[in-house]
């Protein structure tokens, strides 16, 4: 055992990178669920975003353009979900699941000719002086721009949901869509926009995996991160900052676990692998006393005539 081999600064820095796709997807889904829609298609939207972003970045040579394309692709796929659930009144759980399966298949098809290609590199930002500071430099000032965007997005979502009129309307729709409708808010329109926002965020998260974290395209490369993002929203009890904390916790476990292994610490991997889920269960039990957290209309379809 040689714990000194683990560099805590590098550990935290790579932990933040590992957590970012999770954070982006979770923040998007959080907004969707706050609007009262349960979209289980996060994994599918992520993987489509991953290939759309990858393909665009390769063709255009610009990773940033890739991220834009990923957001558009994720949102486009989510529109399919919105049409099914909001207009055709289909079951949200079934539609979400099929969206994931569809996304996995579609991405494999789109990615046929992109296997084994290297994407253009997204450089880390480098701020003179700040990035060179010991300890805080690599942790706070040495990342790529999307990572900061994820944190900024968390702050923005928190502010909007808590303090803005838009956030209040969104929450009203999620808590009681009939009352919101009676007040004259366009429930379907708001939900459609929320779903598209969720799709765009999931797409960004997927592209972060294929363009920065891995970076390459392989089929099925999101490998369940979308599902963890879904669990994370519940874990965070629909609060953005807790989602950030949860993402670092969930994302960190993998990195910490691998670090411990490489340093020769023999903790059975199974314990670390199940720890985030264990924590989720414990948190859920604690939160079950407080029913006010989940949006009351979550997963229920709305039709103006009812």
């Amino acid at each position: 055992m040689d714990l000194s081999a683990i560099n805590p600064v590098l550990l935290i820095a790579s932990l933040m990178v590992a957590a970012t796709p999770l954070l982006l997807a979770a923040i998007g889904e959080l907004v969707v669920e706050k609007a009262g829609v349960l979209n289980l298609g996060v994994e599918g939207m992520m993987i489509v975003g991953a290939i759309a972003g990858f393909a665009t970045a390769v063709e255009s040579g610009s990773p940033l353009l890739g991220f834009v394309a990923a957001a558009i692709a994720g949102a486009a796929l989510s529109i399919l979900f919105a049409i099914l659930t909001q207009f055709a009144q289909a079951n949200q759980v079934a539609s979400g699941l099929s969206l994931t399966l569809f996304g996995l298949g579609l991405s494999a098809l789109m990615g046929q000719s992109y296997v084994g290609i290297k994407p253009p590199q997204m450089g880390d930002i480098h701020i003179p002086v700040l990035s060179d500071l010991p300890v805080v430099g690599p942790i706070l000032f040495g990342h790529d721009i999307i990572l900061y965007f994820g944190i900024a997005l968390t702050a923005a979502v928190w502010w909007v949901l808590k303090y803005s009129r838009l956030g209040l309307v969104l929450r009203a729709v999620g808590e009681n869509h009939d009352a919101a409708h009676a007040l004259g808010y366009k429930v379907l329109k708001i939900r459609l926009l929320a779903i598209m926002f969720g799709g765009a965020c999931a797409g960004l998260g997927g592209a972060y995996i294929s363009l920065i974290r891995v970076p390459q395209w392989t089929e099925g490369m999101t490998a369940g991160i979308g599902w963890i993002a879904l669990a994370l929203v519940v874990f965070a009890s629909w609060k953005p900052w807790r989602a950030l904390l949860g993402a670092y916790l969930f994302g960190g476990v993998t990195v910490v676990q691998l670090n411990l292994q490489a340093a020769g610490v023999a903790i059975p991997v199974e314990y670390l692998a199940m720890s985030p889920y264990l924590i989720t269960i414990i948190v859920l039990v604690i939160l079950s006393a407080d029913k006010s957290n989940a949006p009351a209309s979550l997963g229920r379809n709305f039709h103006a005539s009812r």
Binding site: I209, T218, M221, T222, A223
Partner: peptide, 9 residues
């Protein structure tokens, strides 16, 4: 097979 995990490792 888990590209993200392999990259992390």
């Amino acid at each position: 097979f888990d590209p993200a995990k392999e990259a992390d490792a």
